[in-house]
Write a protein that binds this DNA or RNA. Structure first.
Lengths: 344, 344
DNA sequence: CGTTACGATGTGAACGATCACAGGGCTTGG
DNA sequence: CCAAGCCCTGTGATCGTTCACATCGTAACG
């Protein structure tokens, strides 16, 4: 910076002013400084700036080490929004969502002097840990539960589940079964609640719901049990991979989808339209989620009022994407033209 | 730090020594300093440290904005390895892999004074841009091509394609068709080459190969054309989503898999075992890829010899995971017990 | 015993930016 | 004509570390 100042024939402070777009610099001077910068290929030193201003321009992102479609999409949405707002993003992944792991991640980010933290860490333990973020820092939880004094941005999983369940009931199914996600994820529990509430509201039998995992394995195992029960005609799955597992279990049991059984997923992964049959599923706009969460975080940073940290929570509405995996019960319609007649 | 020094009754320099684990500090003094740190909840200021040492402890990661399974997995592998090595990871995503976008990302990371850059950016344009990374910084390209003077860590896509193709030939297929990925990704081109070379080596007819995208859509479109051709009995797909699209196209055309047509994918996504039928595919260890790429980067940083930057490239060998989507041609075997007999 | 060597600590100056403040020049208004 | 006020610029201190060097004591060595 000194060199730039010398070359432009001004003081270091003027260079700094040009850098920070301070209004009172004469146009001609500014041009000379900019020219000097270009000539010397000058780049402001972020570390020095951080030291002087106590603002790092870095946001921390705690990501759950998972290649699930949702979390991965959010990451990109968040980074994009952060970049647009002029922030850098430092990522720390955690292997588990246990309290200590998340606290460690927070610690790591604090060491880096981040200005705020976004956590894609949807278990309660994570949300609680997030409440430990020092005052003065922003903190937002993405997904998960909306409690524990930390702002949260998430989808309305209950509404999404209701959408799916109601869709199946409207098709004429007597009731809807559910294949759940992991019991310690609020997402999974909210989806169960939305499903159950919709059945209640429609005065239907509520079958027992099984918790599982977010994987196709889990869907396959739980789906196999449902496939054996001929009274099952409609299944709402915790997410799309689970639905894929259920589809496979149904297929192996010789139960046609959607003729014998209708299946609905959750997430709308890019491949969902190419499952056999194409999956009816609940669509969530993850990129939007990322953007909104960053909005909330930035709002916290602007107002410098960490007291109101738990306000500004946002609930996004999912939508239903209807494809070929759902239809009226008991063969009232034939959508599939190539499924087997075999029953086991 | 001054406060810590005062409380411990030593000079700031001694505190610094304790912080940096300098050997010549008396055990007792060290203990006193550590105690003082704890009492004051002291945290070293990274910015000041960076300013003084000119080492930021940050690595830059350029990620392609995509929720493809591969890139997402690599990200986690890299972050994990970086953390283990004591580095922070700053992520910048790019929307396109065009030269300017990648250069911009590099610029952004340089502004942050990263010590090295890992780019998950597998197109040539990206690799070329990566060569522009200033001297003194490490640079590694993950995936993609292995040229252009930048170290690269990637899978041996030719070998993977050969594995898949040979597997199909060994099953008795006369030749193997291919559904390609995007023409501007070296991965896609290498897979084509490996496939073609294997056919040549076995003295088989080489059908024309079509480029497409990495998506199920693309697989579906290209697969539909192949499905119409009864001479097609084996299809090797550029990746798993493409294979999913092909499976669907085959199904809609009434061609049974694997009875009429065998299909092989590439990647081994977690869901591959639950496709209908379960997908035979080429498995890549993405986490390992992440680790190795970081190893290479750190080696560059240690030796401080940017001259040898393009050495140390690593080629990882994929393996074949055989599942139910491949079998001998023309109904010599019946693996599926519930597929239709209908032909359109 | 004197010299050397090293171990343990302290002192002041960087690192490269920003902030607070102090000026010079010019317009403006009384 | 002078004072006030604004625009523009410069000066020095400051942020919290580490680095280079100086100092002091004590052990080792001939």
């Amino acid at each position: 910076m000194r060199d730039v100042a010398r070359l432009a024939g001004v003081s270091h402070q003027t260079v700094s002013r040009v850098l920070n777009e301070h209004p009172s610099v004469r146009e001609e001077t500014r041009a000379r400084v900019l020219e000097a910068m270009r000539a010397l290929n000058y780049r402001r030193n972020l570390a020095a700036r951080t030291l002087a201003t106590r603002r790092s321009g870095i946001l921390g992102l705690i990501g759950f080490e998972s290649t699930l479609y949702g979390p991965a999409s959010m990451l990109y949405g968040i980074e994009d929004a952060a970049r647009a707002a002029g922030y850098f993003v430092s990522v720390v992944t955690v292997r588990s969502l246990e309290r200590t792991a998340v606290l460690e991640a927070i610690d790591r980010l604090c060491a880096q002097a981040v200005e705020g933290i976004v956590a894609i860490a949807p278990k309660e333990s994570a949300a609680h840990a997030l409440a430990q973020v020092p005052d003065g820092l922003g903190a937002v939880g993405v997904g998960g539960a909306g409690e524990s004094g930390v702002a949260s941005v998430r989808f309305d999983n209950r509404a999404g589940a209701a959408l799916a369940t109601q869709h199946l009931l409207d098709l004429g199914h007597a009731t809807v079964h559910h294949v759940g996600g992991p019991s310690d994820w609020p997402e999974a529990r909210d989806r169960i609640e939305g499903w159950r509430a919709t059945l209640y509201a429609n005065d239907r039998v509520v079958p027992p719901a099984a918790f599982g995992a977010w994987t196709a394995d889990s869907g396959y195992d739980l789906g196999a049990a449902l496939a054996r029960d001929p009274s099952v005609t409609a299944v709402f799955c915790a997410n799309d991979p689970v639905a894929l597992g259920v589809l496979r279990a149904m297929h192996e049991a010789g139960r046609r989808v959607p003729d014998d059984v209708s299946v609905v997923g959750f997430d709308d992964v890019p491949e969902a339209g190419y499952f056999l049959p194409p999956l009816t599923t609940v669509r969530q706009d993850f990129a939007e989620l990322g953007r909104r969460s960053l909005e909330v975080l930035l709002a916290q940073l602007r107002e410098d009022a960490p007291a109101g940290r738990d306000d500004g929570s946002v609930l996004l509405e999912p939508t239903l994407t209807v494809r070929g995996s759902t239809g009226p019960p008991s063969g009232q319609s034939r959508r599939s033209n190539s499924s087997s007649r075999l029953r086991q």
